[in-house]
């Protein structure tokens, strides 16, 4: 649905994107993950047609970004979306719908809990209400592709959860989405696939689980037993440290490590008092990757 091929963008001869390539399939939620300045917004703006690029190509359903905007294929919520201070919520919907040459979508205002605020001026809306309004405006012309830049930045927990629910509903309705974020839990919760962007390079791509599981030794086991254990005898585990009453070990294969541990406990008649398994999070994994890349 979205094809980005070898995208290169320089600002004043300073490379910002250094040959970024990825593909977003139909009905997929794809996230561009990266720290500030990694090139996420620039990549999205190239896809949205807001920015020219020096090399490479971008296609949305086999159309250029400008053709895609003209055909009403894409809906966009920018990181810095803004509107006129004195426009009301209802007028904003009318204004955008008429410009997009579609019927005014009062249902969307209802869907995003904005009907009660319909006469409120844009300048008086909260950050959450503005985000919801811009999302509703982006969906007004029923696009096939939705582009979201930091969709929940500045939102409180409740507003964030509501917006996540709405994004998931849109996926159920068949929408293809690409979003940029540096919120790992958001990306883990919402996205089918992730691309990690560092210093203008897409250095890793995959599902959140694939990326988390790529380095397996990060699965941590905290084991509390009835008597001391010599972990040299359990080959699938590496002893790391002792924390209070727990032995902290890591394993590169959770299934084999656990099976071996249980068998060994049975043979030695050792009682397992407690076991805590800590899977690595996307955040830990991201920090590892960033450190490895020297970011």
């Amino acid at each position: 649905m979205i094809k980005v091929n070898n995208l290169v963008k320089n600002y004043d001869n300073k490379p910002v994107l250094k040959g970024v390539s990825f593909e977003v399939k139909e009905n997929e939620i794809y996230a561009l993950l990266g720290p500030n300045g990694a090139g996420k917004t620039t990549t999205l703006e190239c896809i949205e047609g807001l920015r020219s690029f020096d090399q490479g190509s971008v296609s949305l359903a086999n159309k250029t970004p400008h053709q895609a905007i003209s055909a009403g294929l894409i809906g966009v919520q920018l990181q810095s979306s803004s509107l006129f201070r004195n426009i009301s919520v209802l007028e904003a919907m009318e204004f955008i719908c008429r410009s997009q040459n579609c019927d005014v979508s009062y249902d969307l205002l209802d869907q995003f809990d904005l009907m009660d605020q319909k006469n409120k001026k844009y300048k008086t809306l909260s950050t959450g209400q503005k985000r919801k309004l811009h999302l509703a405006l982006a969906l007004a012309h029923q696009p096939k592709i939705l582009i979201l830049d930091e969709p929940t930045a500045g939102l409180d927990v409740q507003a964030r959860a509501t917006l996540h629910k709405q994004i998931k509903q849109l996926k159920q309705q068949g929408m293809t989405m690409i979003l940029a974020s540096h919120d790992m839990s958001e990306v883990e919760d919402l996205c089918d696939r992730i691309g990690i962007l560092l210093n203008g390079n897409l250095i890793k791509e995959g599902t959140p689980l694939e990326i988390i599981n790529e380095v397996k030794e990060h699965t941590i086991l905290k084991i509390k037993t009835s008597e001391a254990i010599n972990y040299k005898d359990v080959k699938a585990l590496s002893f790391l440290s002792q924390q209070q009453d727990y032995d902290v070990c890591s394993t590169d294969n959770l299934h084999d490590g656990l099976a071996m541990l249980m068998q060994w406990f049975n043979e030695k008649n050792i009682e397992l008092l407690d076991l805590i398994i800590e899977k690595p999070t996307l955040e830990q994994r991201f920090i590892d990757i960033a450190n490895k890349e020297g970011v």
């Binding site: 807001l50 966009v76 920018l78 979306s81 509107l83 410009s99």
Partner: peptide, 9 residues
């Protein structure tokens, strides 16, 4: 930017 992506003339 909002106007451009919303096709506002």
């Amino acid at each position: 930017k909002t106007l451009v992506v919303s096709k506002v003339s």
